[in-house]
Simulated assay, not measured.
Amino acid sequence: MTSQGLGRIEDGAIAVLDTPYADAGALIEATGSLDALAAAEVVRRIPLDEATGDDAGPLLAPIRPRALWGIGMNYHSKARLTGRDAPAEPVLYLAAPSSVSGPGAGVRLPAEQTAEMDYEAEIAVVIGRTLDHAAEADAWAAVAAVTAANDMTCRDVMKRTGWPVLAKSFPGFTPLGASLLSRDRVAGPDAIGVRSWVRGEQRQDSSSADMIFPIPELLARISRYAVLHPGDVVLTGTPAGTGQDRGDFLRPGDTIRVEIDGVLPLTTRVRT
Score class of each variant (00 low, 15 high):
Ser3Arg: 13
Gly7Phe: 07
Asp11Lys: 15
Gly12Phe: 13
Ala15Tyr: 03
Pro20Cys: 04
Asp23Arg: 11
Ala26Asp: 11
Leu27Met: 11
Ile28Ala: 07
Glu29Trp: 09
Gly32Arg: 06
Asp35Ala: 14
Ala40Leu: 07
Glu41Phe: 08
Val42Tyr: 10
Arg44Val: 06
Pro47Ala: 13
Asp49Gly: 07
Glu50Trp: 02
Ala51Gln: 03
Ala56Arg: 05
Pro58Leu: 12
Pro58Lys: 02
Leu60Trp: 08
Ala61Asn: 08
Pro62Val: 11
Ile63Asn: 06
Ile63Arg: 04
Ile63Met: 03
Arg64Ser: 08
Arg66Gln: 15
Ala67Cys: 11
Leu68Gly: 02
Trp69Phe: 12
Gly70Glu: 02
Gly70Met: 06
Ile71Met: 00
Asn74Cys: 11
Ser77Lys: 08
Ser77Asn: 12
Arg84Ser: 09
Glu89Met: 12
Pro90Phe: 09
Pro90Gln: 03
Tyr93Ile: 05
Tyr93His: 03
Tyr93Leu: 10
Ala96His: 06
Ala96Arg: 00
Ser99Asp: 01
Val100Met: 02
Gly102Phe: 07
Leu109Thr: 01
Pro110Asp: 04
Ala111Ile: 12
Ala111Cys: 11
Glu112Trp: 01
Thr114Asn: 04
Thr114Pro: 06
Met117Cys: 07
Asp118Arg: 01
Tyr119Leu: 12
Ala121Phe: 03
Ala121Cys: 02
Ile123Cys: 14
Val125Ser: 04
Val125Tyr: 07
Ile127Thr: 00
Ile127Leu: 02
Ala135Leu: 12
Ala145Glu: 05
Val146Trp: 07
Ala149Ser: 03
Asn150Cys: 04
Thr153Asn: 00
Asp156Asn: 10
Thr161Ser: 15
Gly162Pro: 02
Gly162Thr: 06
Trp163Val: 11
Pro164Trp: 04
Pro164Val: 01
Pro164Glu: 04
Leu166Glu: 00
Leu166Phe: 02
Phe170Pro: 00
Pro171Cys: 03
Thr174His: 13
Thr174Asp: 12
Gly177Leu: 06
Ser179Met: 09
Arg183Trp: 05
Asp184Trp: 14
Gly188Gln: 09
Ile192His: 08
Val194His: 00
Arg195Thr: 10
Gln204Glu: 05
Asp205Ser: 15
Ala209Lys: 07
Met211Gln: 15
Met211His: 14
Pro214Gln: 02
Leu218Ile: 10
Leu219Lys: 07
Ala220Cys: 14
Tyr225Arg: 12
Leu228Cys: 07
Leu228Glu: 06
Thr236Cys: 09
Gly237Pro: 14
Pro239Phe: 14
Pro239His: 01
Ala240Gly: 15
Gln244Asp: 15
Thr255Glu: 11
Arg257His: 01
Arg257Met: 03
Val263Asn: 08
Leu264Thr: 04
Pro265Asn: 00
Arg271Trp: 12
Thr272Asn: 09
